[in-house]
Amino acid sequence: MSQIHVSTKINGDATEYLCEPEETLLDVLRDRLGMTGSKEGCGTGDCGACSVTLDGRLVCACLVLGAEAQDREVGTVEGIAEGDSLHPLQKKFLEHAALQCGVCTPGFLVAAKSLLERNSDPSEEEVRYWLAGNLCRCTGYDKIVRAVLDTAKEMRSA
């Protein structure tokens, strides 16, 4: 089967690649573009470790085909910091020790950023439900939820 040519934008950069028809966006990012920040924890959309945005909408990259990114805009964890300046969420995750092993962290950051773009003042319950699609096995979520709430507070007062 011949490969599909895709023109897309990733973290603001125009990007082209070839992919198999059955290849997921996650595989394209990781294996063809060397963007290994998005992780495969399950491949079935259950863990959220591969969370990215597609035209601003939060999705699991393992449930999107690489070919579907044609003429769309993809946002990944690699695009959250601006140059060497960390996003407030990234700083707060470090300050709150909201990661232990760190493998779920990229997905949580992408998902939390997506939440704060929609809701600048989420309640604890809203944070917990928004992040319910992201599994973390190390932290028990406590410090993650605190980091997100603290980021929202700081960004509101900025």
Partner: peptide, 15 residues
Amino acid sequence: GFLDYRVPVASDLPM
């Protein structure tokens, strides 16, 4: 799989 082997998610829990 994580859909049927359900580990706790953020909305299941308190602090």
